[in-house]
Simulated scan of single mutants.
Amino acid sequence: MAATPGRRVTSADVARQAGLSRATVSYVLNNTPHQSIPEETRQRVLTAAAQLGYSPSAAARALRSGRSDVVLCLLPDWPVGPEVGALLTNLSTALAARGLTFVIHPVIPGDRPVAEIWKAITPAAVLAFEELSDSDVAAMRGAGVASVVALLGSSRRQRRELEVSQQRVGRMQAEHLAATGHTRLGYAYPDDARLRHFAEPRLEGVRTACAELGLDAPLVQVVPLDAPDAAAAVRRWRDNRIGGVCAYNDEVALALLAGLREHGLAAPADLAVIGVDDIPVARLADPPLTTVTTDQNAVAAHLAATVVAVVAGEPQPRPPGSDIVTVTRRGSA
C-alpha cells in the first residue's frame, strides 16, 4: 500500500506496509538497544521502509536524543569573500561526510541574542568564530550542546578552542618581501571595519617579522578599493622610500596595482606588492599577483574533526601545521 501523494511517509505507514505493530517498527527504525527482533522481521521493516521511501523526521530524532544532527555556525558580521566562502563550503562538505548538517546563522551586533538562535535549533554543536560569553557556554553545556570556538587569535579559554592564526599570514608576507631585498615595508589596511578580526593579527604578524629581521616597523595606511585613493597611498609610501607593501588581501593588492598605474608606475620595480588569499583573478592581474594562501581544505577538515571530537567527548585532534600557509610567487613581488 503506497502512502498518499504529497504526505510525509511515517513509521505508521511502514508498520501497515510490513504488517507489524508500530512498536516493533519503531524498535527497528530507531535501532533501539536491548530488543530481541528476529532478523526476518527486521528485514521486513527495512524493505517496507525502502518501498515507501521512508526517512526519519529530523524533529523526531531531536526529540528522542535531545539534540539534532545540526552543527550551528555563528558567523560574525563579515563580508563573505572568496576565502571565507571557500572555508564555509569545505566545512559543510567535511561535516556532511560525518553525518552532520551545517547551518550558518549570521550574528549581527544588536540583533537577537545568541541563546535565542541555538535554542531554536537545539544543535549537536555550536561553532563560533568569536568569543562566546561565559553565560552562553554554561547554558550550552547545561543543554548538552557542545561548543567550539575557531578564533583568529588568543583566547582565555584554551581547551575547547581551535586557533586559526592569521599572524602567520602577515609574517610570511613580510619575510618574502625582505628576502627579495626590501628593507622598508608598508602595510595596506582595509577600510572595512568588519575585517579588523583578520586585519589586526595579519598586521601584527608583519610587525613581528619586521622586528625580528631588524627592519623598521611597517608604515600603515588604510587603502580603499578605489584607484585614486590607492594612488594617494602609493605616493605616501614612495615619499617615505617604502619598497614593498603587504596588502591585507588580494583585493586591496589589486587596488594598489591600479594606484601604481595612476602614477605611471608598476610593480615590482617601483613598489613590490604581495596579497593574501590567491583569489581567481590574482593570476590575471598585470603583473600577476604574488600572494599568501591558506589550505582551506585542511582548515575545514580540522574544524570538522574538532567538532566531532567535542560532540563525542573525545580528545581534540592536533591543529594543522604551519605548512598549510604558503607563498605563491608571481610577478608583483
Rank of each mutant, 00 (worst) to 15 (best):
A138F: 07
D77K: 02
S92F: 05
L151H: 14
L88A: 02
A178K: 09
V126C: 08
V103K: 00
R141V: 09
L87K: 01
F102S: 05
W118M: 05
G144R: 11
Q166H: 15
R98P: 08
H176V: 07
A178G: 10
A125H: 09
A188E: 00
M172N: 06
E116D: 15
V114Q: 01
V80E: 02
I121Y: 06
A139L: 12
V149D: 07
R171E: 13
G186E: 03
G81I: 07
T89I: 11
L72P: 00
H182C: 11
G144E: 14
I121Q: 07
K119V: 02
L72Q: 05
E131A: 15
G186K: 01
S92G: 14
V80I: 11
R168N: 08
H182L: 08
M172K: 12
A94Q: 07
R112A: 14
A125F: 08
P76M: 00
E131W: 05
R184K: 11
L162C: 09
V84N: 00
R171T: 14
V71I: 14
Q158A: 12
G181N: 08
R141Y: 13
G144K: 06
V84Y: 10
V114M: 04
E163V: 15
R168M: 11
L127K: 08
A178T: 13
Q166E: 12
V126S: 09
H176C: 07
V70M: 07
L177P: 01
V70N: 03
G186F: 01
H176P: 04
W78C: 00
T180W: 02
G99Q: 10
V103D: 01
D136T: 12
L151E: 14
Y187F: 15
A124H: 04
G153L: 06
L72S: 01
P79T: 04
E83G: 07
D111K: 08
H105I: 10
L95R: 11
L132C: 04
A97C: 12
A179H: 02
R159Y: 02
